[in-house]
Amino acid sequence: QVALSRTQVCGILREELFQGDAFHQSDTHIFIIMGASGDLAKKKIYPTIWWLFRDGLLPENTFIVGYARSRLTVADIRKQSEPFFKATPEEKLKLEDFFARNSYVAGQYDDAASYQRLNSHMNALHLGSQANRLFYLALPPTVYEAVTKNIHESCMSQIGWNRIIVEKPFGRDLQSSDRLSNHISSLFREDQIYRIDHYLGKEMVQNLMVLRFANRIFGPIWNRDNIACVILTFKEPFGTEGRGGYFDEFGIIRDVMQNHLLQMLCLVAMEKPASTNSDDVRDEKVKVLKCISEVQANNVVLGQYVGNPDGEGEATKGYLDDPTVPRGSTTATFAAVVLYVENERWDGVPFILRCGKALNERKAEVRLQFHDVAGDIFHQQCKRNELVIRVQPNEAVYTKMMTKKPGMFFNPEESELDLTYGNRYKNVKLPDAYERLILDVFCGSQMHFVRSDELREAWRIFTPLLHQIELEKPKPIPYIYGSRGPTEADELMKRVGFQYEGTYKWVNPHKL
């Protein structure tokens, strides 16, 4: 086992960053958080920038500027975001240094004079007029057009580079997404736009490419001749908990499936790229999406959770019991969808996408189930092999396979070949997804960000279904809070070829 401390991990990262040409360590950078008073800024962006600063992973002359409508001070920003920093008493001095680099400007999102004030403020910072500028839009999409237009007109660096990070949702359907994309691309070049999907920053999602293309053993079996089906799962054990009003506007397909799960599907299904260059990788992902037809209604199961009468606390409440959810809402909190990649490698292999709230566990994984062994000599005792990439929690890679049961006879039983990170790298604290992705933006690497043509294809696949749901308002199937979801989803999976045995229990190697 390799035991690495946080300091050692960050030392390795620093070495990698400083050796590259793309990370300008000594240049002045300004990180501007648009929507600095909001939840995302408070819980994710400010803490992430602090962790990067604490670990010495930001360029040395980096300033952080918050911008929002609320009249706040840096002290206010500190008060609301610091509880999420997880700072230790030993880091007190470092924390003071961090907040000394912070400033805040209040202004409207659609007022040109406010942006001119913001620009004057940035120019007044040390070497601010020639600094590289990175704008993070932690804002609702309704203000994107006004904000990007004003940034472009008043706040661009004339000497350094300018980059803009856009948070999902990128529209509600193909038409609104196209409108937003066309607007942003009329102001910024594609190499300046970073559409963030934080799932692409997760260690195991990034590991998929290495697993596939750096190991000879997987190449020959990664196709329709050997793989019976692919299941991509995202499960949350909690409901909307008072935030249903926002969720109800989008629903589970827009929230998770059309982005996170579809991105994971691309990494499983794509061909080997010409290189690890950002556009070479994204070219292959677009090719996969172009091979997927629009979702067919007979390959869809929609569910909505109801309270568990035997549960406790939140578990007793259904989705419609959330006071922020519109009365009688038919918005799905669970969806199972089957897609097919219609190309030579994957023809006929079902890709089953499942996601839901208020389920029995927290889990995100990719599961490849292989065909049955031909010419069975073990009297149907063999179960199908599976390769599982567990994204969260407890990152893991393992192969479910058959071995001989101890004893006199040739009785096979299920076991696993474990390729888990935790076994080799004991207690290594890896940077989280937002840390990686923000560092990628500083480096100018777009590999783990969504390109406009990729986004367009993703919406093309799901828009007809979303429009049909909005028009017909089908009643989702009720499922109990804390269950596996509607049984109809299991029946759909069985119908397209997935075999669920229920006889195997994964042993978490992190707890051995």
Rank of each mutant, 00 (worst) to 15 (best):
I253L: 11
I253P: 00
I253S: 02
R254T: 06
V256T: 09
M257C: 13
Q258L: 05
Q258T: 07
N259S: 04
H260C: 01
H260R: 04
H260G: 01
L262V: 12
L262G: 07
Q263Y: 03
M264S: 04
M264F: 05
L265F: 11
L265P: 02
L265M: 11
L265Q: 00
L265G: 04
C266Y: 03
V268E: 02
V268A: 09
M270D: 01
K272Q: 09
P273K: 04
A274P: 14
A274G: 13
S275C: 08
T276F: 03
N277E: 11
N277A: 11
S278E: 09
D279S: 10
D279K: 12
D280C: 11
R282I: 04
R282D: 01
R282A: 02
D283W: 06
D283C: 04
E284Y: 07
E284A: 08
V286C: 08
V286K: 13
V286S: 09
K287F: 06
K287D: 09
K290F: 03
C291T: 14
C291D: 10
S293W: 06
V295S: 13
A297S: 14
N298C: 13
V301Y: 02
L302R: 11
G303V: 04
G303T: 03
G303C: 02
Q304C: 06
Q304M: 05
Y305N: 01
G307F: 05
G307C: 10
N308S: 13
P309V: 13
G311C: 12
G311N: 14
G311Y: 10
E312T: 12
G313L: 10
A315H: 10
A315V: 15
G318H: 07
G318S: 14
G318T: 06
L320W: 07
D321R: 06
D322T: 05
P323C: 12
P323A: 15
P326E: 07
P326C: 06
P326H: 06
G328C: 15
G328Q: 14
A332Y: 04
A332I: 02
T333Q: 03
T333S: 09
A336Q: 15
V337F: 07
V337R: 00
E342W: 09
E342N: 13
E342D: 15
E342Y: 11
E344N: 08
R345N: 11
R345L: 09
R345P: 06
W346G: 01
W346N: 00
W346V: 02
W346S: 04
D347M: 09
D347R: 13
G348Y: 00
G348W: 04
G348P: 02
V349Y: 03
P350I: 01
F351K: 00
F351Y: 03
F351R: 01
I352W: 04
C355G: 09
G356C: 02
G356Q: 03
G356R: 02
K357E: 03
K357L: 02
K357G: 01
E361P: 01
R362H: 11
R362L: 09
K363A: 05
K363R: 10
K363S: 05
A364M: 13
E365S: 08
L368E: 01
L368G: 00
Q369D: 02
Q369K: 05
F370M: 09
F370A: 00
H371M: 09
D372F: 01
V373R: 05
V373W: 06
V373N: 08
A374C: 09
A374M: 08
G375M: 10
G375N: 13
G375K: 09
G375Q: 13
D376E: 13
D376Q: 10
F378R: 03
H379Q: 13
H379V: 13
H379A: 15
C382R: 10
K383P: 13
R384F: 01
N385F: 04
L387Y: 06
L387P: 01
V388L: 05
I389L: 10
R390Y: 05
Q392A: 08
P393H: 07
N394S: 09
N394F: 09
N394P: 04
E395Y: 03
A396N: 05
A396S: 12
V397R: 04
Y398I: 03
Y398R: 03
T399V: 10
T399H: 11
M401C: 11
M401S: 04
M401A: 12
M402V: 10
M402E: 11
K404M: 05
P406A: 10
P406N: 06
M408Q: 08
M408F: 15
F409S: 15
F410S: 15
F410W: 15
P412C: 10
P412T: 11
E413I: 13
E413T: 12
E414L: 12
S415D: 04
E416W: 04
L417I: 01
L419M: 12
T420W: 05
T420Y: 05
Y421V: 07
G422D: 15
G422K: 14
N423E: 15
R424S: 06
Y425R: 03
K426R: 11
K429V: 09
K429W: 04
P431D: 13
P431I: 07
D432Q: 10
D432W: 06
Y434Q: 04
Y434E: 01
E435H: 08
R436Q: 07
R436D: 03
R436M: 01
L437I: 07
L437H: 00
I438D: 01
I438M: 10
L439P: 00
V441P: 07
F442V: 14
G444W: 01
S445I: 08
S445R: 12
S445V: 09
Q446V: 06
Q446W: 02
Q446H: 01
H448C: 05
H448K: 13
F449E: 03
F449M: 05
R451K: 03
S452L: 06
D453V: 01
E454Q: 05
E454W: 03
E454S: 03
L455F: 01
L455V: 05
R456T: 07
E457L: 09
A458C: 08
W459M: 02
W459V: 01
T463R: 00
P464F: 08
L466H: 02
H467I: 08
I469Q: 12
L471W: 12
L471P: 06
L471R: 15
K473H: 14
P474W: 10
K475H: 15
P476Y: 00
P476W: 01
P476I: 10
P478F: 08
Y479G: 03
Y479A: 03
Y479I: 04
Y479K: 01
S483I: 00
S483N: 08
S483Y: 05
G485M: 01
P486M: 04
P486Q: 03
T487M: 14
D490M: 10
E491F: 10
K494A: 13
R495P: 03
R495D: 14
V496Q: 10
F498R: 07
Q499H: 14
Q499G: 12
Q499P: 04
G502Q: 10
